[in-house]
Amino acid sequence: MKKEQLLDLYRQMVLIRRVEERGMELYQAGKIGGFMHLYIGQEAVSTGLIAAREDRDRVITAYRDHGVALNCGISADEVMAELLGKATGMSKGKGGSMHMADTSKNMWGGHAIVGGHLPIAAGLAVGDQYAKNDNITICMFGDGATNIGYFHEALNLSKTWGLRVLWVCENNQYGMGTAVERASAVTEIRQKADGYGMKSRRIEGMDVMTVYEAAKEALDFVRKEAQPYFLEIDTYRYEGHSMGDPERYRKSDEVKKWREEDPIGIFNKYLIEKKTATRKALEEIEAAVEDEVAKAIEFAETSPEPTLEDLYANIYAD
């Protein structure tokens, strides 16, 4: 990967972190409503994964979607505006934190019914198969989603029909507050793909380069073989399941241990050690991101609310 690309990955990860840190403040100030699920700690996963896709490849994810939206190229302005429920958000303020999408960026949502978007991901791939192209649908979901029926119906269909789907399980160790071993018959989620004769792999997800390399390999396989592939990525969310989570289910020592594996810190160290960038250059990126996020907040706060007429807009397309 070229130097510019590497630095851009760093920028994306810092951007996700800052957007969400500032988002927490706005949430606590009552400016963001509803549920808000933070991606902090998991930045290397979607950053590495989406860097490996071609623009024509589709991305669809669950409700922990701010990072994915940013990685797909949706602006911080639009993410902030949607969080604040403004008309300038990509979903015009009707979706909120959990429902971010931009079809022009091939980002097919933010979906908030656990596991519910997996059959839809299969459907995106059915559409591409029907159109006889070799686009890939990258479908991300949590470990918790692998215990619900939708998961099994979708995986089965994808293998039976030879759909180009890269299934990506972000195993962040908990489905809400229930640890993987308390909810799943197997703790190595990857094994579930074996039941469908599907190729799979489990990797560590705190190093963006590891994710990128594995994603490249998986995408190559899917494109060439016209077969689905199951990638399990071990990761950890530093914040609660959603804002206001009392976190009774885990000890602070555990969080502390994972925080030492901070994906941004790991990549920062990597870039400096490899002499890809100086500490100063990285600090400049961080400062530019701070600025970008401050401007995004200003954009969102000064953006108009949807009008009451918008209440009735887009119920039907016809």
Binding site: L124, G127, E153, L157
Partner: peptide
């Protein structure tokens, strides 16, 4: 698998079929 049938239909419809 009704969820797969309708999920597949919805997804394919979203991309223009």
């Amino acid at each position: 698998a009704e969820n797969a049938i309708l999920g597949a239909a919805i997804g394919a419809a979203m991309v223009g079929q």
